[in-house]
Design a protein around this nucleic acid. Structure first.
Length: 323
DNA sequence: GGAATTTGACCCGC
DNA sequence: GCGGGTCAAATTCC
């Protein structure tokens, strides 16, 4: 089974699951926003599935609905096997999107105080007003670009339709130590401690920017390594779901995951830059309740999370899936 | 003084 | 020519 088909199946399964959730919320006491959120997720799954078919040469006949796309927690545009190539051999030569591994993520529900947090240290190198967009686009590159030659970059732009949505485009892969830290043993770091210390640079103009749309706290975040049980059996374990739920409900967008017992043999970590769609899907699971937490529709039933199906035969150890 | 951000200018693709 | 991506000097903060 190839990568696209697997992703397609995941999306279809998720669509079915969210549809079931929506059915549970059809009673009059359920809030409209909750139902709208679930509808958006269903549309998101459809759009992702159609996009996959589209990429594989199927004429799906329709263009993705903008609202549906923006409702998606993540849309993976990674082109497997594509490598970062710094084309800036000529001064200020413009990089083209082709040839760059690109991943687009839409982080919804990120309040001004809870911005995108992907765990890497980024340095902002530019900001540009985008034609037709109310909010400027911020350009970030890895802090270790010069010291370690890390070529990872990202672009952050707030959605016009929903200012709580941040569209984050990742291009390139982290080759710095941060990436290896992600591959290491998980060290849980409380959110509070991550926001203190030398990463608490606050400026008045940054506060102003907050109001304008680009939150700056996503620029410098020290983010713990993320790992989860390697064995599918452990994935099915309630502790896994509970950990996700607990951390999600805490309102932290970061996939801070506290493992019961960290063991290198039982846990594996995946660098976000290399996770591809799986990371996106995992982020879906983790970030969705968060977005609910930050949204007015707080009555979303988390119990449905327990119904998520994890394929026991899922090839977690198959490197091809993450390429 | 070092590091990070801001911002105007430059460059390239379309 | 326009829009988007990047550079780099200036600025700001610790």
């Amino acid at each position: 089974m190839d990568w696209e088909l697997r992703t397609l199946l995941i999306e279809l399964k998720e669509g079915r699951e969210v549809t079931n959730q929506l059915m549970n919320h059809l009673h009059p006491t359920s809030s409209h926003q909750t139902r709208q959120l679930l509808l958006d997720k269903i549309l998101c799954s459809y759009e992702k599935a159609l996009s996959i078919l589209n990429w594989n040469g199927f004429d799906v006949g329709t263009k993705p609905a903008v609202n549906a796309i923006e409702s998606c927690r993540s849309i993976d545009h990674s082109s497997p096997g594509s490598e970062v190539s710094d084309k800036r051999e000529v001064f200020k030569k413009r990089k083209t999107s082709s040839g760059l591994a690109e991943q687009v993520r839409v982080c919804s529900g990120a309040s001004l105080d809870n911005p995108i947090d992907d765990g890497y240290c980024w340095r902002k190198y530019g900001q540009k007003a985008i034609h037709g967009s109310n909010f400027p686009r911020g350009y970030y590159r890895c802090t270790h670009r010069h010291s370690q030659g890390c070529l990872a970059i990202k672009q952050v732009q707030r959605s016009d339709n929903d200012p709580t949505n941040f569209e984050v485009k990742y291009k390139g892969r982290h080759t710095c130590n941060q990436a290896s830290q992600f591959a290491g043993t998980f060290i849980p770091v409380p959110v509070e401690s991550r926001e203190k210390g030398n990463h608490s640079r606050k400026r008045q103009h940054q506060l102003d920017e907050k109001l304008e749309g680009l939150d700056n706290r996503n620029r410098k975040d020290v983010f713990p390594s993320f790992s989860f049980p390697f064995e599918p059996e452990a994935v099915k374990n309630d502790s896994f779901i509970d950990a996700i739920r607990e951390n999600s409900v805490m309102g932290n967008l970061s996939p801070v995951f506290i493992s019961p017992e960290t063991s290198e043999s039982n846990y594996f970590s995946v660098s976000p830059c290399c996770m591809g769609s799986f990371e996106s899907d995992l982020t879906d699971i983790i970030s969705d309740p968060t977005s609910v937490t930050n949204s007015p529709s707080e009555d979303l039933d988390f119990s449905s999370l327990d119904k998520l199906e994890f394929d026991p035969n899922f090839p977690f150890d198959n490197p091809e899936f993450f390429s």
